[in-house]
Design a protein around this nucleic acid. Sequence first.
RNA 1: GCCCCUGUAGUUCAACGGAUAGAACGAGAGACUCCUAAGCUCUAAAUAGAGGUUCAAUUCCUCUCAGGGGUACCA
Length: 525
Amino acid sequence: MTTRQIIKQLLERAIKKNYGKKVKAGVEKPQNFFFGDYATNVAMMLKQDPNKIALFLKSPLFEKVETKRGFINFFLSKEYLQKKVGQILKQGERFGDLKIGRGERVNVEFVSANPTGPLTLGNGRGGFCGDCLANILERSGFKVTREYYINDRGKQVVQLGHSVIGDEESVYKGNYIEELKGKMKGVLVKGPILVKVPAQKYADRVGEKAANIILKEMIKPAVKKMGIKFDTWFSEKSLYKKGEIKKTLSLLRKKKLIYEKEGAFWFKSIPFGDDKDRVLIKEDGEETYFLSDIAYLTDKINRGFKKIIFFLGADHSGYVQRIKAIAKALGFPVENIDIIIMQLVKLFEKGKEVRMSKRAGIYLTIEELIDEVGLDVARFFFLQRSPDSHLNFDLDLARKQSAKNPVYYIQYAHARICSILRKSPKYKIQDKGYKTLSHPSELNLIRQLIRLPEVIEDTVKDRQVQRIPQYALDLATTFHQFYRDCKVISDNNQSTKERLALVLAAKIILKNTLSLMGISTPEKM
RNA sequence: GCCCCUGUAGUUCAACGGAUAGAACGAGAGACUCCUAAGCUCUAAAUAGAGGUUCAAUUCCUCUCAGGGGUACCA
């Protein structure tokens, strides 16, 4: 249990016992250390005298409990903090793990870029955030599947085909199209007749082939470079091959959710909260992506996921209502669907906006960015920002500032620890004692260390991943201050021993935090 | 038109309805006889505007202004 949870429990029990009221007490870390390690506003909420409530809260956990302006402020005792060092060492990389997921299966879908071109900065943003959230969920006791949905059929594939053929219906531009032309020369030379398909199917066929190449040779390597491992690459086309589309149609018919109008088949999505009904099969007989989406969500549900999370770009914000409408129609609890909209990344060059477009062939790929600034910097850069922020990205600036990226500040703390450990005499690390750890900077460091599980807990609840880099920065600052104030290796045997234990604990937490973000932990810098 | 998101130091971003609005970069100043100076310490600098709800508003509501996205028998 986290320290915060323990305090919460103490508080809630005391209130129930003395006031006969069941409350959910809010316990938070105050912005200013002056107000203690944790604080609650519960007295104000209950309109009770905080001093009176404070009297009920006697525990060896606290050095003191104060009240100020209606708040109750908790100051953790030295003994409690010292004890925590041993606990961190004992739990090692499991420290910070929570059990709130209870083994529940979660599907996290992210990136899912169309296989019509390279992954862009926007895909990178969603990719890093999705991956980080997946890490966090895993450490919170969920069983996570990372999934990439490949839209490998439909209109954009045909358009890709035209682009590779280079006819007048060509849409996509860019170097990669030229490369594809080279790679597919064999197919292109033969033309529609020799490939033995009707002319109108030819672009489709070329597009499918091109999409495969893009997926295999551009997207998958880029994803690998991003440090992401998907458990499932789910093909839209496979829904057709497996007959899932037909099944979905008959299911919807059975539920009387389909009607015909103007030669097309429509899904009645308005009753489920959508703005308008949606077309499933167009007048020309072509199935829409929306039909696939229904089959796809059905498939996810059938695979046994209890929670389904999507990371989508803001250009897909219109999807939210539709996905929820599908879930409702399928009888899946909407509250277990979580759609995180990432606002778009705007590219700036020399202070001027460059409008990115795969169609126009203007874009910056995520691979190019990683090549320029490195993976750790790229990950940290995107993870720091709230999904809601409209991100302005200036490559020149990023390049210039990458050497000063705060991620190095954090990694530097880790490298410093490793350096100390390399120089340190060998002690057997004990998991008890630590009575000499009492310098304010030592205790502050412990205070910071034990926050990790709380940060993870908050992030699981609201999916605001930017909390993690923020915490990592705070942690590194606290460590650097400790480093300034407390020399670890000294003539004092006992102090050296205990400080080494503390440093080791800090290393564990730093590493756990950085690995949540998928950022490396160098031993030397 | 309707729907979603945003507006916070010079810049890029933080802040479950809470206390003195935090960082980083940039600007200015300082400290090393000592485990890595990619570090430490200090200074200046911000909630777009107007109302409202609340004991308490950057946060919630309404309006204004300024941006981004969506609103297809495209994906």
